[in-house]
């Protein structure tokens, strides 16, 4: 056996161990788009709640009024669904381009480890809405999303873990500052997604 042979053998082993245990077709672009949707949604929500008038910003509504609650809920839901659809679509496209099957043991594991914290958080938020505890929704959503990313990161790029930590930290900070929910959402779901999506795109998407 020649030295090059051994090196190529070792690198092929390493490559296989990596490829079989991590899903690497996540698309950075879908992160950027999710961030853009979140910013758009936040902007519309902001315009619904605040009215621009003669230099003074007046609150038209407080978020606990039912009249504003449903439109806000609809915006949040639309952003969520749009982000998930874009993510799934771009990921499938990316996997196809790499000649990989997107539905394999790793992607299944990735999905289930993402879904457990995500659904727990989702149901908790619904319960909080039902009980009228609105000001804790922003921290809870950020924290559970962060936990989902940390748990999912075992089956994909480790960068995702750091994004998860940042979301959790942001959520805890938001819990200390009630009334700034929208600001933290904009940072966590908007800017962080765009930043991380761009980093991932340039690091891996080529």
């Amino acid at each position: 056996m020649k030295e090059e042979d051994i090196y190529s053998e070792l690198s092929s082993i390493r490559n296989l161990m990596e490829r079989s245990s991590r899903f690497i077709s996540l698309s950075g672009l879908s992160g950027v788009l999710a961030g853009v949707y979140a910013l758009t949604g936040a902007f519309i929500a902001y315009r619904l709640v605040y009215r621009e008038g003669s230099g003074l910003r007046l609150r038209d509504f407080y978020v606990n009024e039912p009249l504003i609650l449903w439109p806000l809920f609809a915006i949040a839901l639309a952003v969520l669904i749009l982000s998930i659809c874009t993510g799934v679509w771009l990921t499938i496209r990316q996997a196809k381009r790499k000649g990989e099957n997107f539905w394999n043991p790793v992607s299944k594991r990735l999905l289930s480890s993402l879904c457990i914290p995500l659904f727990t958080g989702g149901f908790l938020i619904l319960a909080l809405i039902a009980r009228g505890e609105y000001d804790i929704i922003a921290p809870v959503s950020l924290i559970f999303y962060g936990l989902a990313l940390v748990s999912g990161s075992h089956y994909t790029y480790s960068d995702v873990k750091f994004l998860g930590f940042l979301e959790i930290a942001l959520g805890l900070l938001a819990a200390l500052m009630p009334g700034f929910g929208l600001v933290f959402w904009v940072i966590g779901f908007g800017f962080l997604h765009i930043l991380y999506g761009a980093i991932m795109h340039f690091k891996y998407d080529k």
């Binding site: 053998e9 296989l16 161990m17 043991p105």
Partner: peptide, 10 residues
Amino acid sequence: LQVMSVLVAN
């Protein structure tokens, strides 16, 4: 060897 690499990692 390749099969074994996959099974050791998973």
